[in-house]
Design a protein around this nucleic acid. Structure first.
Lengths: 217, 217
DNA sequence: AGACGCTTGTGAAATAGTTCACAATGCTAG
DNA sequence: CTAGCATTGTGAACTATTTCACAAGCGTCT
């Protein structure tokens, strides 16, 4: 593994992978960096640079073998295995994620669902029963959970994450709109829909192509 | 408006805003860039640089007035108004977003919900009825929609977006895992949960602090 | 009123990320 | 077996973003 891989490179690899899988379904044999870049909305040089960080996967003059490159990217991203995931927060968003087929398809298996709400505890979700978040540690250890999906209110997220980390969780997908603090070696990725809407609001307000001047301020 | 504002700056402003609002609730009078940076997980210089792009909001020696800075940031982000939003895709995720209080709180009002599924069309969602996506244009024009939230399958997203853009939509929050193509002046922001999980998978696999060597490849 | 302490606002330096441009092939055809 | 074509892999140039470091204030205290 190269010492320095930027976050944007990883995100692009994930994007390439989705495209490569679609191409593989369409029976595609080879892709050039130019084609892959066009599909991903980036440049050919960027594609080649991204891939070359991890090895030499193409053939000069011919491009990349679609199926093989997909395998390599999957391997780089660590998707060659299954991940055991616990979902904390059995609300609307949690429920939507639980049903989200793309997670399972990528090897992320939700093996426990927890909530504080007594009305929810005991509900059957697929083959699982919603458990009391009081027994978080027990559930995480029982199921060998490594990744936590957090969809609880912002005020409760930190406490839950602290407990989960103490129980061995090392990766967190955080939907709570709060800045989580964790020790080194624990990775947190945020999904913040409000932030994206606000960025959209900024664009619509300030990045209008022509006319609006820069008279403000 | 300054000519060049990076996307990361905007995302941080959104983050600052959330922190400032929490501080305002706690009655906080002033913040220094150091305090704000600590809360946001960035540096004081970064905070000052971000803010200074838009004006001079602090007082030397004393920091920023919490309530006032929050107002300014809200204004920068274009949040001083309400946005009329349509939701296309009345599935699990759509339903979760519809109930998501933080959207409304920020002035994003869902004024129409559409789907293709005949079983869903006509369902009551709050004060709205789910409409047939066939009448997308009519709904968008009737409600004066400017922002679209897309939670349909990847295969259908592009067609819907094309129609919406033709009907005057200029901002799109895209949950479909696909690269949307739009004309200039239309802003697309993606929320890609699978990508975040894959980035997490990469981190867990490759960024383990010590021990794992770089023997691969 | 003047000096002091604290914190902003901001050029300049440093670091990170992207694009360019081309030599190094691998493949195919003759 | 050699020439020609296409496309990779990659140092070097460029651009963007972050961090540094410090002069410019603002308010307070004596």
């Amino acid at each position: 593994m190269p010492a320095k891989v930027s976050d944007s490179t990883i995100r692009r690899l994930s994007h390439y992978l989705r495209i490569l899988e679609a191409m593989a379904r369409d029976g595609g044999g080879t892709v050039s960096s130019v084609q892959l870049a066009a599909a991903a909305g980036t440049t050919a040089a960027q594609v080649r640079k991204d891939l070359s960080l991890f090895g030499s996967f193409g053939k000069r003059g011919h491009g990349y073998q679609v199926a093989e490159l997909a395998d390599r990217v999957r391997e780089i991203l660590g998707l060659g295995r299954d991940w055991r995931v616990a979902l904390v927060g059995a609300g609307r968003i949690g429920s939507a994620l639980f049903e989200y087929a793309d997670f399972r398809r990528r090897g992320f298996h939700i093996v426990a669902v927890l909530d504080v709400d007594p009305a929810k505890i005991g509900e059957r979700w697929g083959t699982l029963a919603v458990e009391d978040v009081a027994s978080l540690e027990a559930a995480l250890e029982r199921e060998g959970v490594e990744v936590l999906i957090v969809t609880v209110p912002a005020t409760e997220a930190q406490a839950i994450v602290d407990r989960a980390v103490a129980s061995g969780v090392r990766g967190i997908l955080n939907f709570a709109p709060t800045q989580l603090r964790t020790e080194d070696g624990v990775f947190v990725h945020d999904v913040n829909m409000v932030m994206e809407l606000e960025a959209l609001s900024f664009d619509l307000t300030n990045r209008i192509p022509a006319d609006v001047g820069d008279t403000a301020d």
